[in-house]
Simulated assay, not measured.
Amino acid sequence: MQGSGEAALQGEWQQDTAALQKKLVNYSLYHFKFSCDSFFVSVKSFSKANGGYPDSCVQNGQWSEYAKGVYDQKHDTLRLKGLFTNADLTYKVEGGCFRSGKYEETFKLVKKADSVIQFFPTSSVIPFDARLIKRSTCIPKPL
């Protein structure tokens, strides 16, 4: 059976936009969906500079990446482990635009309110707030 995950995370969380983003050359906006012990993340990236990607990959300085897998939370540390996917959740084959293969990311979490969590990514120095936009309840499914 699927694990139950963290009750406080169950549902969909959208990163708040911030005034600081307008000053950055590159930034990303996260959308998380936690269901029991599983996650799906959409990362929409914005760049005022191309960043070395072909024009066919970067549309007007914007692109999206997706991943799914399992998560684990111990105290204030959230670890996401999975694989990059296409928008339709099929696993992404190597090659083409952007990253493929393993997706691993770690965040320190600080609860600011029942529906607001501040994420501190270990891969960045810029924390962000995410708002709960849809609450769900874990109903474990067979693996």
Score class of each variant (00 low, 15 high):
Lys48Met: 08
Lys102Met: 14
Thr90Ala: 10
Ala7Tyr: 01
Ile117Gly: 07
Phe46Lys: 08
Val25Phe: 05
Gly82His: 05
Leu29Thr: 09
Phe46Gly: 11
Ser123Leu: 12
Ser56Gly: 06
Thr122Leu: 13
Phe107Pro: 10
Tyr53Thr: 13
Ser38Asn: 06
Gln14Ala: 10
Phe98Tyr: 12
Val25Lys: 11
Phe34Ser: 00
Gly3Cys: 03
Thr17Ala: 06
Ser28Pro: 08
Ala8Glu: 09
Val70Met: 08
Leu20Lys: 07
Thr122Val: 14
Phe34Leu: 00
Met1Tyr: 05
Ser4Leu: 03
Gln21Leu: 06
Lys92His: 02
Lys23Cys: 09
Gln10Ser: 00
Gly5Ile: 00
Leu24Glu: 07
Leu89Glu: 07
Leu78Cys: 10
Thr122Phe: 11
Ser100Gln: 07
Thr90Met: 08
Leu132His: 04
Lys48Ala: 15
Gly82Lys: 01
Ala18Gly: 07
Cys57Leu: 09
Thr90Gly: 08
Cys138Leu: 00
Glu94Cys: 15
His75Ala: 15
Phe32Lys: 00
Ala67Phe: 01
Asp55Gly: 14
Phe39Arg: 01
Phe107Leu: 12
Lys68Arg: 05
Glu105Lys: 15
Gln15Ser: 05
Ile117Val: 11
Val110Ile: 13
Val58Asp: 08
Cys138Thr: 00
Thr137Glu: 11
Ile126Val: 14
Ala49Tyr: 05
Ser47Asp: 11
Gln73Phe: 02
Gly95Tyr: 02
Phe120Arg: 04
Ser38Arg: 05
Leu9Trp: 02
Leu143Glu: 08
Val43Trp: 02
Thr17Cys: 03
Lys102Ile: 15
Val116Lys: 08
Leu24Trp: 04
Glu94Ser: 15
Trp63Gln: 10
Gly95Asn: 06
Ser123Glu: 11
Ser56Asn: 12
Lys141Ser: 15
Val116Trp: 04
Ser38Gly: 02
Leu132Gln: 09
Pro140Met: 02
Thr122Asn: 11
Met1Leu: 13
Ile133Cys: 05
Lys33Arg: 02
Phe40Ala: 03
Phe34Val: 01
Val58Gly: 11
Asp129Ala: 09
His31Glu: 09
Val25Cys: 10
Cys36His: 00
Thr17Gly: 10
Glu104Lys: 14
Lys81Gly: 11
Ala87Asn: 04
Tyr91Leu: 15
Leu78Val: 07
Asp129Gln: 10
Ala49Gly: 06
Val41Ile: 15
Ala87Glu: 08
Gly61Asn: 12
Tyr27Lys: 03
Leu78Pro: 04
Phe128Glu: 01
Lys102Arg: 14
Gly11Gln: 01
Ser42Ile: 06
Leu132Ala: 11
Ser38Asp: 03
His75Gln: 14
Ser35Gln: 05
Ala87Tyr: 03
Tyr71Cys: 03
Ser115Gly: 10
Lys102Gly: 11
Ala8Cys: 06
Asp76Tyr: 03
Lys102Glu: 14
Pro127Thr: 02
Trp13Pro: 03
Tyr53Arg: 13
Asp72Thr: 15
Ile117Asn: 06
Pro140Phe: 02
Ala113Lys: 13
Gly96Ile: 04
Phe119Asp: 01
Ile133Gln: 07
Tyr27Gly: 07
Ser136Asp: 06
Leu132Asn: 07
Lys44Thr: 15
Phe107Trp: 05
Ile139Val: 14
Lys108Glu: 12
Phe40Ser: 05
Glu105His: 12
Thr106Lys: 13
Arg99Ser: 15
Thr90Asn: 10
Glu65Ser: 15
Gly82Val: 02
Val93His: 10
Ala67Ile: 03
Ala113Ile: 08
Leu132Lys: 13
Ser136Trp: 01
Cys36Gln: 00
Phe120Lys: 11
